[in-house]
């Protein structure tokens, strides 16, 4: 097989319908390549695919590319755009980023092998979207996004500072900050408990992602990073309930993202084996 031939990049599995096919018209994917549907015989599901250049997506190049955040972002956003576009028309089962086959035939073989599992999974996901629910704690002594200063801090910190030596005033402020921060973590626990309590009214399934840290995560501390699967017609109520859940909890913010295609819920039941025991089965 000539290594220069284009490879087949697979974005998602979807029901093979006329509407889905129509939705792909003019759509561009990774590297700007046109996106199409790859069917396998009479299977009710098809792959959403495009061609990618082998010199960009062979194994060695890819490993290097994954060190390159700019490149990774380009691929991730292109992948996401394709998945979300299809998701507007039908239930989509997204594939892991950078799933690449040697050619269409090999991708088709994989599709045929998995067709039944994909179909079942799509049926489970139908009518629902994924929503991200994140809780943030703002650092003590900071002002929140509305410009308010933290209530606890100003109450305790400002009290008769004038009558103290600068050193004592400083220590007192530090103590107040510290206790304000503890209060915020307590509030965050409370917020998380409220989210947990209300979610079953809207959602049957949850996946916990690790809290976001690091360079991309932003200045506030993320303490909860969950994904919920919510029926389309309950989404607005879900948002409203979440916003209400953090009311009165100073320094804690809830952020709802989505609707997402069900990325976090796409994995079909893994074959039993190491690591298949369930959530939290840490290696």
């Amino acid at each position: 097989m000539n290594a220069r031939e284009d490879l087949t990049y697979v974005y998602a599995a979807v029901p093979d319908t006329r509407e889905v096919r129509a939705s792909l018209g003019g759509l561009r994917g990774v590297s700007g390549a046109p996106v199409s549907l790859l069917a396998a015989g009479t299977a009710p599901v098809a792959f959403v695919v495009s061609r990618v250049a082998p010199d960009e997506f062979d194994e060695r190049t890819l490993k290097a590319r994954f060190e390159d955040l700019e490149w990774l972002e380009g691929v991730a956003r292109a992948h996401h755009e394709v998945v979300q576009t299809v998701a507007r028309h039908d239930t989509v089962l997204p594939l892991r980023l950078a799933t690449v086959y040697q050619n269409d035939d090999r991708a088709r073989r994989a599709l045929t092998d998995q067709s039944r599992a994909f179909t079942e999974r799509i049926a489970l996901l139908r009518g629902r979207s994924e929503f991200g629910v994140k809780l943030y704690v703002s650092p003590a002594g900071s002002t929140d996004r509305t410009g308010r200063t933290d209530g606890a801090e100003s109450r305790e910190g400002a009290a008769d500072d004038a009558s103290l030596t600068p050193g004592k005033a400083y220590l007192r402020r530090r103590r107040a900050q510290h206790s304000a921060q503890e209060t915020r973590y307590r509030y965050a626990q409370e917020a998380a408990a409220r989210v947990e309590a209300l979610a079953p009214r809207f959602s049957t399934h949850r996946v916990r992602h690790p809290a976001q840290t690091g360079a991309l995560a932003g200045p506030e501390e993320n303490v909860l990073n969950d994904a919920y699967l919510v029926p389309h017609d309950r989404a607005e109520e879900f948002r409203t309930a979440l916003a209400a859940a953090v009311e009165g909890l100073d320094g804690v913010r809830v952020e709802v993202t989505g609707p997402w295609a069900p990325y976090s819920f796409a994995t079909p039941s893994p074959p039993s084996g190491p690591g298949a025991a369930g959530e939290g089965a840490a290696p």
């Binding site: 490879l7 697979v10 599995a13 997506f57 062979d58 194994e59 890819l62 991730a76 992948h79 996401h80 089962l93 997204p94 594939l95 892991r96 980023l97 950078a98 799933t99 690449v100 086959y101 040697q102 090999r106 073989r109 994989a110 092998d113 998995q114 994909f118 999974r121 994924e130 991200g132 996946v207 992602h209 976001q212 990073n225 994904a227 997402w260 990325y263 976090s264 819920f265 796409a266 994995t267 079909p268």
Partner: peptide, 16 residues
């Protein structure tokens, strides 16, 4: 978060 840890993982016959 979603693209690197979510999504269906296929095995076998992949280039990558």
């Amino acid at each position: 978060d979603r693209l690197l840890s979510g999504g269906v993982v296929l095995s076998g016959d992949l280039v990558l």
